[in-house]
């Protein structure tokens, strides 16, 4: 019953992390000038770009417009070179459509939708390189891009994965290698500050005995991710501020 040992005798994972450590996150806001907001994120080797347009008037079928809430339109795609085997279709396949829907659901939970009736926000995410946990990276990138676009959100919406190693140890932020060798993966999208879970998905069924610990790990991962994103946003504000003459105050924030 034992699958491959994903945490070694000394408590390290295949890439050298401990069970509760996230991969390195690097991110940047405002990477494009064309969209209203944009962000780039690296979680380990998974790299995602996000762009946000809007809010703007509802395009296309005007009948879709809603009186009480903004329409959120999400599109997920993967670059053809993002996986080790070249992808044939970057978007529009079943998986992309499903992830687009999930992303929309995640963002609706964070955006103050009632602020922009009769309008629309478009969110584009593109995976440049996939190495496990692509959906969480997309959610995190989209959050940053929304912030860059200045769209009011209730709080950060963050996502993270978790799984079970060696049949009984929960571990967080699953890399592609671990996804392949290991057991089922749990993905959650959460509002970490209010500890609300927005979305939860399992690649396979978990044994009930393990679900609680895996869920806790994933939630903890979301909180840690939020702290890192928060830091990135603050740094970004300082940088932007510096270029617009708030330099002195910016310095203070930095210290």
């Amino acid at each position: 019953m034992s699958r491959k040992e994903l945490i070694s005798k000394v408590g390290l994972r295949l890439d050298g992390r401990r069970a509760d450590e996230l991969r390195r996150i690097r991110c940047k806001l405002g990477v494009f000038s064309e969209p209203d907001g944009s962000a780039y994120i690296e979680q380990g080797l998974t790299k995602v770009l996000a762009a946000v347009y809007g809010p703007h008037q509802v395009r296309g079928n005007r009948l879709k417009a809603q009186a009480d809430a903004v329409i959120i339109n999400c599109q997920f795609s993967m670059a053809v070179f993002s996986t080790s085997e070249r992808k044939k279709r970057p978007r529009g396949d079943r998986k992309s459509t499903e992830l687009s829907l999930h992303l929309r659901q995640a963002l609706i939970a964070a955006i103050e939708v009632e602020k922009y009736p009769w309008s629309q926000i478009d969110v584009y995410v593109e995976v440049l390189h996939a190495d496990g946990g692509i959906f969480p990276a997309c959610v995190n990138a989209a959050t940053l891009a929304l912030i860059d676009a200045g769209i009011p959100i209730k709080e950060y919406v963050c996502a993270c994965t978790a799984s079970i190693a060696n049949n009984n140890q929960a571990m967080v932020d699953i890399s592609h290698e671990e996804e392949i060798l290991g057991g089922p993966t749990l993905t959650i999208v959460a509002l970490p500050m209010s500890e609300k879970i927005v979305l939860m998905e399992m690649s396979q069924r978990f044994h009930l005995d393990h679900l609680k610990s895996v869920l806790e790990k994933a939630l903890e991962g979301c909180k840690n991710t939020k702290n890192i994103l928060d830091q990135a946003v603050q740094n970004h504000i300082v940088d932007v501020g510096a270029s617009t003459g708030w330099a002195s105050t910016g310095e203070k924030v930095k210290r």
Binding site: L14, G16, R24, L45
Partner: peptide, 11 residues
């Protein structure tokens, strides 16, 4: 002919 990249964290 596939290129796999893996992370290796040095502690």
């Amino acid at each position: 002919y596939l290129k796999h990249a893996r992370e290796h964290y040095i502690r």
